[in-house]
Design a protein around this nucleic acid. Structure first.
Lengths: 202, 202
DNA sequence: CGATTTCTGTATCGATCGATACTGAAGTCG
DNA sequence: CGACTTCAGTATCGATCGATACAGAAATCG
């Protein structure tokens, strides 16, 4: 005989919200915010529009939560890379992580933070601004990491951390575009290896 | 008394098709293919949907013609850059041209070839594939130019022209993303100058 | 002139967009 | 059990999407 624990009142949810959010993230990643219709989303999530609205609010809220999941999942390489002991190690890990994430087989090609809403119509302005902030935040954190390397004496004091961070993120965003164009992982990694041989930028 | 030249039969067009196409290009550039609605387009073009369909076919055909105009207008720096006498001159001109075009005041920020349709829903698949080809074509032409520099003995024979072209276009596409994020022209140019000081890539 | 051809403006088409109202179903309470 | 609360499925909302039908206007023809 099963003892009924005092669970949440009311009818329990008939689906796994975490799994549904993962599916939604993949759809947004592949088609972008405006390119992903509610019909496509809910079909991939395996739930009805009613359930989606009850669980996530609306389409924009769903995207915001999907972006958080992307940041802590496929894009977690960034946070890990920033903890590398050297500036070159950080940069190497960022480029390798960007290449791996944007060219993973059986996953959407490209970066959700870039192609989620690089431009938009009126309805996507909020999400576009969110992604602008997301990208600029990544650049800022990298700049701070380079500043630390300068303070630690690892990088020469005349180094411009802002330009260096802009350079690395520019490469990373460019990699995302190339991946979305179907360029293969090996070619991008060879290119990154060549670029890293010039480290640090004069 | 005006002599009637044998002009085209029927009622003449009441608008400048070239000017209308220019306006459409700017809208596609700013909002992307799917983000630009027919209402927004025709309003900017100053004509009705009927006139647009009669003159350009449909929305996708309008985009294709707008992309041609973009290639021969704002993106013409690429063809000019390829005629620079040295490989370094080519690369310098490409990066400077990309930065100028993607950060021009009173123009949309970013590159139409990147943000026109980096990803899409079902309706934009044709345009997305068109832009994939557009971007890869630019990379291929640059690769051929670098091959010529190798054949001419300007670049060392062990140079990999494919990787080098991929590196430069990756920077250019990354610049387009940064510009769409609001990064300023001067900062991007300083970054490009720093990157060019390492030329050629080892 | 009338016949013919082409372009324009209005009005609207069916499809799809994101978002909800409503009715039961599936649970926890007392 | 019946009262209460929350979730699920259908059916549909008004708005907007891209695209057209239709009638009239403006030109060249014979």
């Amino acid at each position: 005989m099963k003892t009924r624990q005092s669970g949440p009142i009311g009818r329990p949810r008939g689906f796994d919200a975490d799994e549904a959010l993962e599916r939604a993230m993949l759809v947004f990643w592949e088609h972008g915010y405006e390119g992903a219709s509610l019909a496509t989303l809910t079909n991939a999530m395996g739930i009805s529009t009613t359930s989606m609205y009850a669980a996530f609010g609306n389409k924009e809220e769903l995207f915001r939560k999907a972006l958080e999941r992307y940041t802590e999942g496929p894009s977690a390489y960034l946070a890990r890379a920033l903890e590398e002991p050297t500036a070159l190690g950080v940069t190497t890990a960022i480029l390798a992580g960007a290449i791996r994430t944007t060219t993973r087989p059986a996953h959407p090609h490209g970066c959700m933070g870039v192609q989620g809403a690089l431009v938009s119509g009126d309805s996507g302005r909020g999400v576009r601004d969110l992604l602008v902030a997301w990208r600029n935040n990544g650049c800022s954190r990298l700049q701070e990491r380079f500043q630390r390397a300068i303070d630690d004496g690892e990088l020469p004091p005349e180094t411009n951390p802002r330009l260096l961070a802009r350079y690395v993120t520019t490469l990373a965003f460019g990699i995302a575009v190339q991946a979305a164009s179907g360029v293969g992982r090996d070619e991008l990694q060879e290119m990154a290896d060549a670029a890293l041989r010039t480290w640090p930028l004069p």
